[in-house]
Amino acid sequence: MTWVQLAYLAAALCFILALKGLSTPRYARLGNLVGAAGMALAVVTSYTTIERNGLLILVAVVAGTAAGIPAARQVKMTAVPQMVALFNGVGGAAAALVALTEFLEGHDAGVLFAVATVLTVLIGSVSFSGSVVTFLKLQEVMTTRPVLLPAGQLLGIGVAVVSALLAIFVLVSDSNLLLVLLALAGLALGVLFVLPVGGADVPIAISLLNAFTGLAVAASGYVLGNTLLIVAGTLVGASGTILTRLMAQAMGRPLTNILFGAFKATPPSA
């Protein structure tokens, strides 16, 4: 199996070079292609190691490609940010589903495994529902202005507390049902997190949710014991956090406005 590990290492290097390239105008496009090549290598490698369901997986990949390419090709340039939000959201959902499925298949791997599972499901769900709301905002299906629920502050804190309690109960009880409930709480949390974000802050929120999905993927790497997922997820989580801060600085917006928008009583003045 050594060559599988080596292929994953090569893919991880491609991802680092891709991020590096994307940071400089001259090599940005090349960087993106290097990233895509690394991804192709990683996916083909993982496909060669599976035991069963190969044909069904192939069908799902083809279906995903058939959905993804037209969406990315035909979207108007002005609508690209919400498309990125949507791609980010489905990635978060996929991470949550992977951890959930692994948990359902059997879980006797100890506390760290359970902690990683809980984190993946929670962060992945937050990222998914939060991204869907940012998509709806930018697509102007709903208002782009901050939506402030009555007692939204209390509600946000309440759901956060419930999520934390559910997470602890899952760790103690190994219950499948509680893990599903945790996913639902995460979905609610994502919605509450993004609702109060408005106007120019929305792209920054997308960047932050992007970093979240990266962290969820990294946590899922612990669940599966897969180093490539840990490296790639962490890279995106770390670079996404820095990028979010840089974006907020470039727009002259304090990051705390966005981070704690859900927990603030007064509407942001923008």
Partner: peptide, 21 residues
């Protein structure tokens, strides 16, 4: 860069393939 990083966390596809396999 955000969009490229977004594509890279799609590496969860590897996890999804392994788990379905």
């Amino acid at each position: 860069l955000m969009s490229g990083a977004n594509a890279i966390h799609g590496v969860i596809l590897v996890g999804a393939i392994l788990i379905t396999g």
